[in-house]
Design a protein around this nucleic acid. Structure first.
Length: 730
DNA sequence: CCCGTCGGTTTTTTT
DNA sequence: AACCGACGGG
């Protein structure tokens, strides 16, 4: 094998033939190259068979890319290699090993929340403000990430709230089981269970896998770590590749300790650092290094490049998001659109930029946002299909039982639900026993009508191919007609999306060797984006969130909205870890740029429907001054281009006036006295109880604004500005 | 049961 | 600003 294109550490990693290895791969240091060469080495030099090699990624895009690059390198088909996301590989194993008869449905967060809502209703907690489906879902997922089962959780409860939560958690699990559904976390957990409890199955996989490769190891959670550990107990050949500085998914359970403590958990592990960057200019790299050096929790690592010095980073200060967009357009005109990208912290920010791009006739694509498979009409059709694939899936059944309207109302559904709960049967089974339910004649008729519809289609499912079947479902159910007749705004787009879904089925059937409805549904459940297949070939600029930018690179990059409260966005009070994660996100953004980087921040930003004053991100102070050119295009004088700490209060005061003018409202007494006063770092304030203190930091906006104040008497306190009666001193 | 209206709430990131 | 759920009239 030819390893001459590799640098020394890369080669060292590729040639590490036995035992665990951690490859700490800085941004742009060629980690994919290492993975693909490792695969090639296993195949060609070590005589492994394709199915003895497994490569796990997080996103479908990464899996696809790895597939392509391996294919290119080994110059033969990747068939037989296990390359895929954690979730897709695990789902494949679970189906193959017959979990739920191989016919389980995968619930996304939306489905999960619906289950939780039902559970809350059942437990009479639906109105409790303390339990929102969203929070519960997040908490359950957090526990599952850490492999804490209901039983385990019960052992660590310490208050009444936890006890109620445990109830909800327990019922949630029961409900999923009843529906023969697995949530995302279950897919990993159940695979671990299989490896733990089924010796036969376990040894099959454990003996088979002679090389496991894990991409983006810094994003793994405890469950995924456990999975990796169990898959490799026999051969112990595991190569994990990652960059602790690019860990940006801790909110989803990613545990940095996995990478920081790799050597501890995998004894005799080798560690290789890839520190030569082949992507960016010296200036961009120095900036990135300087910024990330502010993080305490990291394995130290310094990127270097033999590339050119490059141009200074431009930091634009502009009036508002319209001006920001205008500036972005101007910047984009300086190069090829296909080589350019705009990143932002939140999807909502894309709107203003899109608008300006459209006005300027600049073609663009947006990655992410409301995903295709999460659209209402698409989910509706999928719900139909899911019921045919898994009749136990009552969440899907309830979704479509009265869509389009069939005269089946809430009352009727409640009776149906009660009956199935009492009889311990699925809702679908209950439809077969309508006679036993106390229903009015009308209710009988409509439910029976629905059942006949489903029965008829079910027969068709056995004979028709998936495409034919889907066409029939949307027609016979009346769903298509419903949107065709709809006068609702956006109906056309919905119809187009439904058509697009049929296309997707068609495409799937063509591509798949053994097409089935189930296969399609699984693919859809684990897919993130339909569109990311698009390459850099078209002449358009790409817009996306910083999170989705990880792993990509562009000649020219814009980072928009570098403002306190937006980026970094820190919501909890245990701010430090969160701030470090935001900084890593900033680091990811910076290191996407190959040649030119522009960073923007505004003076005012429209958020939550109103214009609010914005303040420069603390990250801007971390940029090395000699790498930066600051350009001030904001009219207001409240921001001198020096450090934000030196801003005068008077200026903020003027800014406040301007803000009020823009919003055309006079602040009422309360807001003037409490909320609207702008507190800044370093400011002296008076608190009615604790007296005089100094503001240490400020986070959040308007009603959510929090200040950390150091009082001589009481120490440091975190205060909600809205409630704490803070007054500026002098 | 259906539909429109009103009011309240939300906005981070994703497999 | 946009979306959702609760509520009440038809």
């Amino acid at each position: 094998m030819d390893l001459s294109i590799l640098n020394e550490p890369q080669r060292e990693a590729v040639l590490h033939d036995s035992g665990p290895i951690l490859v700490l791969a800085g941004a742009g240091s060629g980690k994919t190259r290492v993975i693909t060469h490792r695969v090639a080495r296993c195949l060609f030099d070590l005589g492994m068979r394709p199915w003895e090699i497994m490569a796990l990624t997080f996103t479908n895009k990464a899996a696809r890319e790895m597939n392509e690059r391996v294919e290119k390198l080994i110059n033969q088909s990747t068939k037989g290699l296990w390359i895929g996301t954690f979730h897709s590989i695990c789902a494949r194993i679970l189906r193959y090993e017959g979990v739920h008869g191989g016919k389980f449905t995968i619930y996304d967060t939306d489905d999960q929340q619906k289950v939780i809502k039902r559970v809350l209703e059942k437990l009479g907690l639906a109105d409790s403000k303390r339990f929102t489906p969203k929070d519960i879902q997040g908490r359950i997922s957090g526990l599952k990430n850490r492999m804490i089962s209901v039983t385990a959780f019960k052992g660590m409860m310490n208050n009444a709230y936890d006890e109620q939560f445990a109830q909800i958690y327990a019922n949630y699990e029961i409900e999923l089981e009843r529906n023969e559904a697995l949530d995302f976390d279950d897919i990993i957990l159940r695979t671990i269970d299989l490896l733990r409890n089924n010796e036969h199955v376990a040894s099959k996989y454990q003996n088979n896998i002679r090389q496991l490769l894990v991409d983006e190891y810094q994003d793994t959670n405890l469950a995924q770590y456990e999975l990796i550990k169990r898959l490799t107990v026999v051969h112990k050949n595991v190569m994990v590749v990652g960059d602790d500085d690019q860990s940006i998914y801790s909110w989803r359970g990613a545990d940095l300790r996995n990478i920081l403590e790799f050597e501890k958990s995998f004894p005799d592990a080798k560690v290789v650092k890839l520190e030569e960057n082949y992507r960016s200019t010296k200036i961009i790299l120095e900036t990135a290094n300087t910024v990330i050096a502010n993080n305490k929790h990291r394995k130290s690592k310094t990127l270097f490049t033999n590339g050119t010095e490059g141009e200074l980073i431009e930091v634009y200060h502009v009036a508002d998001e319209r001006e920001e967009a205008r500036e972005i357009v101007r910047f984009l005109k300086g190069g090829a659109l296909r080589d350019s990208a705009v990143f932002y912290r939140t999807n909502a920010q894309s709107r203003a930029i899109e608008e300006m791009l459209r006005n300027s006739g600049m073609p663009y694509v947006i990655v992410g946002g409301t995903r295709f498979y999460e659209r209402q009409e698409v989910k509706d059709v999928l719900a139909y299909l899911r019921v045919f694939s898994n009749p136990s899936d009552s969440i899907s059944l309830f979704r479509i039982i009265n869509v389009p309207r069939r005269g089946i109302g809430d009352k009727t559904l409640e009776k149906l639900r009660d009956f199935s709960d009492k009889a311990l049967i699925t809702t679908y089974e209950a439809l077969n026993r309508l006679g036993e339910i106390d229903l009015t004649a009308r209710e009988q008729t409509v439910l029976h009508g629905f059942k006949s519809l489903m029965d008829g289609l079910n027969e068709l499912k056995a004979t028709a191919d998936p495409v034919e079947f889907v066409r029939n479902v949307i027609e016979k159910s009346g769903y298509l007609a419903f949107w065709q007749q709809s006068t609702e705004e956006g109906a056309e787009e919905r119809l187009a999306n439904i058509g697009e879904l049929v296309n997707a089925v068609e495409e799937y059937v063509e591509r798949s060797e053994t097409p089935s409805l189930e296969g399609f549904l699984e693919e859809v459940a684990l897919i993130t984006d339909l569109d990311q297949v698009k390459d850099n070939s078209g002449e358009y600029v790409t817009l996306m969130t910083l999170h989705s930018s990880k792993g990509l690179e562009y000649e020219r990059v814009c980072l928009a909205g570098l403002e306190e409260g937006l980026f970094p966005m820190v919501r909890n009070t245990d701010g430090e870890n969160e701030l470090e994660e935001e900084r890593r996100l900033f680091y990811v953004g910076i290191t996407r740029a190959k040649r030119k980087l522009a960073i923007l921040h505004t003076e005012f930003r429209r958020r939550y429907g109103t214009v609010a004053p914005a303040f420069p991100s603390s990250f801007l102070e971390e940029l090395p001054e000699h790498c930066v050119r600051r350009i001030d295009r904001a009219a207001s004088q409240s921001y001198s281009s020096q450090s934000s700490q030196q801003k005068s209060f008077i200026a903020d005061d003027r800014k406040q006036k301007l803000y009020e003018e823009i919003n055309h409202v006079l602040p009422d007494y309360e807001s003037q006295s409490q909320v609207e006063v702008v507190f800044r770092k370093g400011m002296q304030v008076r608190h009615p109880v604790w007296g005089i203190g100094q503001v240490q930091s400020v986070s959040g906006v308007s009603d959510n604004m929090k200040a950390e104040v150091k009082f001589g008497s009481a120490g440091v306190k975190k205060l909600m500005v809205k409630y704490a009666k803070l007054e500026p001193v002098q």
